[in-house]
């Protein structure tokens, strides 16, 4: 601090008798980098604080539609209708519908890998709540252990009404179970999936391994018009 003060006083002494323009050109000549770094740092801190404290919003619900034939992103009618159906307040939390995801889990190479890794990252980070895709693809992803067992834990109670629509798969971890466990719900009977033309030959919904909002996934199933055993 003392050094800074000394520096300030000596610079002040040097600039005595200079005109304003000369003072400014002296500062620009010798301190341009300092000014740039300080201004940049202040701008960054403001930007960062603004985003971290004023724009951070959790998600109500985050779903990914893989290889869908139609646009089912945030601007789609499907998403907007669901927000209205669920009565979400978007000023409080976000709803993410992602349909920009195209991969075949059994194939490797090119953008396929990038999409797949991006998809897996969102699941592993616990951001994604559910994913919908064609049956073959779904089974390939499920075999990698990325979807929850719908007959265990909190999910068991929530998804029990859809038992007749369960899609089964052998778990990734053989010590977990040697027999197939339910990991998805067949959406072939959903009138909305047909109406929006999302998939040609049916599709399956899976609850992501680290989903934070399984109850919202049930709400989405209700919205899609997937009938429970009781309703049938």
């Amino acid at each position: 601090m003392n050094r800074l003060r000394k520096l300030y006083l000596s610079e002040k002494e040097k600039l005595k008798g200079y005109s304003l323009q000369e003072k400014l050109s002296y500062i620009a000549e010798y301190y341009w980098l300092h000014i740039l770094l300080i201004t940049g740092s202040i701008a960054f801190v403001i930007y960062f604080v603004y985003h971290a404290f004023f724009t951070v919003k959790e998600n109500w619900f985050y779903i990914t539609f893989v290889n869908t034939l139609q646009e089912a992103g945030e601007d789609s009618a499907l998403c907007q209708d669901f927000i209205e159906y669920a009565g979400y307040d978007l000023s409080e939390k976000n709803v993410l519908f992602n349909s920009a995801c195209y991969f075949d889990a059994a194939r490797k190479g090119g953008t396929n890998n990038s999409y797949y890794q991006a998809f897996i990252a969102a699941i592993e980070a616990g951001a994604m709540d559910a994913a919908v895709m064609e049956r073959d693809n779904f089974e390939a992803v499920a075999r990698s252990g990325r979807f929850q067992d719908l007959s265990a834990g909190e999910a068991a109670e929530l998804f029990a009404p859809y038992e007749d629509l369960f899609v089964y798969c052998l778990p990734y971890d053989e010590t977990y179970s040697e027999t197939e466990v339910p990991v998805g719900i067949d959406l072939s009977g959903s009138p909305l999936v047909t109406e929006y033309g999302l998939y040609e030959d049916g599709c399956v919904l899976g609850l992501s391994a680290y989903s934070q909002h399984p109850e919202e996934v049930v709400r989405f199933l209700e919205y899609l018009g997937v009938k429970t055993q009781e309703e049938k």
Partner: peptide, 29 residues
């Protein structure tokens, strides 16, 4: 860079050319 923009940018307003192009590949394959 394709993967990172695809992960962090889920909406079309914030994404980049590579991720946008990959999305087009999916739609107009």
């Amino acid at each position: 860079d394709l993967m990172w923009p695809m992960i962090v940018c889920t909406n079309a307003q914030t994404t980049t050319l590579s991720a946008g192009l990959a999305k087009m590949q999916g739609q107009y394959g």
